[in-house]
């Protein structure tokens, strides 16, 4: 039954992702689509915010706009969380101000689309904060990633131009044409299937044992839908989608798992439709899906075979669907959970870490494909050098200046993860002389999740304190914006180049052989960077040390 559900979810994702990818391509190109009725609202937003969204500008002006807008979101969320207790409405349970370092971590976490949570929503947040800070940031952070991807595609398409589109135009349309309609559909599904969505306070009741207990209610379906659609992952409740209100049954679990995978896969297809590169896109989809399905098989076997690991899992989902969710959520930079990852087998934890270390197997909305393209650029360069052909990608010559930035973008990821883990292994509160393999894995996971803007965690670190809040906050920030700014610069450079006609000396980047080179480069970069830490983390436990 569980395996059948996994197959059905995957079929549903791949059947719908291709038409969705075509639709998103139309949205990016400004071609007529069925959501054109949103145009008056978009124009009103542009006028109200006094931005000129209809003229294309250079990559540097787009990057500056992206950063300025995100700085505004950071200030907005940080201040609102600090004054939460003084806001007189939508706070039926009287939630007070958030502690400053926790507010810092929470806001950076949601601005960067990470949604790593060192708080529990039902304990620390008012309904106002859940909607105006958490829900709002989940929309705009996902839209930032999608808009950055759109700018990247425009840069690849342009010839001899210094303009790469307009960030504001893509940003607003990503919300009105993609995220809003999709999250509306998913939230209606969730409400119909039993997820609460209201603005009442906590309800008290008497348990079967005769004790008094209270359960928090609120706009759960609203927050949960955008959490999955935008590869955000930040749960309404502390236990995320393992909570019976946030993910009530087998069907909601399937709907949410579908929502996790849908947009990341659709955005890969968008690449082909937007740039008219169907063959290359087919190769990308095959590479990503081969790795994703291998990881899924490994994790499902790890959780269901042998000891049939039910620890930390909801019986309404079972171990196979918990494993599949784990792979889906770490592959797509989502980070939501429907089981306790800390209780899973070490091999499953190693797979989740590998997913986040590569961070491009579908990846987060928009940024996943940007990360993947960095591997593609590196592969084209390496393969070109190896066989003595001119390194080119879609007719654009790859020069050393682009390679320098691509390498910087790819290497910032291991630097943040390994640097953060090394520092925490020595300085984190509560870390003594003898760090066990499992404790080390927890720290490694925390920083991998932060740098990959994933947000899931093994827990058990008691991480709501100044050290973890600030260190992971910095890592999330740098792990988000450097890998966006670098590729935008590369695409700015590509936009200014003209197409070089293909010759006998041109490397074919759309064939099977080049696909293997991409996989090789991904594995080599990740393995060389991360194998040693995996060996003294989950693999050490797996091998019985």
């Amino acid at each position: 039954m569980e395996i059948a559900a996994i197959v059905v979810i995957l079929i549903a994702v791949f059947l719908t992702a291709k038409p969705a990818g075509r639709y998103i391509s139309h949205v990016f190109k400004g071609e007529p689509v069925f959501t054109d009725f949103m145009r008056p609202l978009e124009e009103w937003i542009f006028r109200f915010c006094r931005v000129d969204a209809h003229h294309e500008v250079s990559w540097s002006r787009n990057a500056a706009a992206l950063l300025k807008l995100n700085l505004l979101f950071f200030a907005w969320g940080f201040i609102l969380l600090l004054i939460q207790g003084y806001i007189p409405f939508l706070n039926p349970d009287g939630k007070g101000a958030m502690e400053p370092s926790l507010a810092f971590h929470t806001v950076i976490s949601f601005v960067t689309n990470t949604n790593q949570q060192h708080y529990s929503g039902e304990v620390d947040l008012s309904h106002f904060s859940q909607i105006v800070v958490i829900g709002f940031l989940q929309f705009v952070s996902a839209a930032t990633g999608i808009a950055a991807y759109a700018l990247f595609l425009v840069g690849l398409k342009k010839r001899g131009s210094h303009e790469t589109g307009n960030f504001y135009w893509f940003f607003v349309r990503s919300i009105t044409r993609i995220l809003l309609p999709l999250s509306l559909v998913i939230s209606i599904f969730l409400v119909v299937l039993g997820t609460p969505n209201n603005y009442t306070g906590a309800k008290s009741f008497i348990t079967l044992e005769g004790d008094s207990a209270s359960v928090s209610l609120g706009p759960v379906a609203t927050v949960t839908s955008i959490k999955q659609v935008g590869t955000n992952g930040g749960g309404y409740y502390g236990t995320n989608s393992a909570h019976p209100f946030e993910n009530p049954n087998f069907i909601t679990n399937a709907v949410e798992n579908f929502a996790i995978l849908f947009l990341p896969v659709a955005l890969v297809f968008t690449f082909g439709f937007f740039l008219n590169e169907k063959k290359l896109t087919r190769s990308f989809i095959l590479i990503m899906s081969a790795v994703f399905l291998s990881f899924t098989a490994l994790t499902v076997i790890s959780e269901t075979g042998g000891s049939f690991n039910l620890e930390g899992k909801e019986v309404r989902f079972g171990p196979a669907l918990s494993a599949f969710w784990g792979v889906s959520t770490t592959a797509t930079s989502n980070g939501s959970v429907n089981s306790m990852l800390d209780s899973q087998q070490p091999l499953s934890q190693a797979v989740y870490l590998a997913d986040m270390m590569i961070n491009a197997i579908y990846g987060g909305v928009g940024v996943g494909m940007i990360n993947f393209m960095m591997y593609v650029i590196l592969s084209a360069f390496i393969a070109g050098l190896m066989v003595g052909r001119t390194p080119e990608l879609m007719g654009k010559k790859i020069e050393s200046k682009e390679i320098k930035i691509a390498v910087l973008t790819v290497l910032i990821h291991p630097v943040l993860i390994l640097g953060g883990t090394a520092i925490s292994s020595h300085f984190a509160p509560g870390v003594g002389e003898g760090v066990s393999f499992h404790e080390f894995t927890r720290m490694l996971y925390e920083f991998t999740s932060a740098a990959a803007n994933n947000g899931s965690g093994l827990e058990g670190l008691a991480d709501n304190n100044g050290f973890w809040n600030i260190s992971t906050g910095i890592v999330m920030f740098l792990g988000r914006f450097i890998p966006i700014i670098g590729p935008l610069a590369i695409t700015g450079s590509f936009a200014s180049k003209n197409i070089v006609p293909g010759t006998e000396g041109t490397l074919d980047t759309s064939g099977f052989a080049f696909g293997l080179v991409i996989v090789g480069v991904m594995i080599i970069v990740s393995a060389l960077s991360f194998f040693p830490v995996l060996a003294i983390g989950p693999l050490a436990i797996f091998t019985g040390h």
Binding site: S58, V107, I108, K404, L478, G492
Partner: peptide
């Protein structure tokens, strides 16, 4: 006070990444 310091840290991070834009522009000559 702690909140102000953390706000300043956030601003500093943005300024650092913002500083990459002119650096990369110069490197790529675009």
């Amino acid at each position: 006070m702690e909140a102000l310091l953390l706000m300043a840290l956030g601003l500093l991070l943005y300024v650092m990444v913002y500083g990459l834009i002119p650096f990369l522009s110069k490197l790529l000559e675009v």
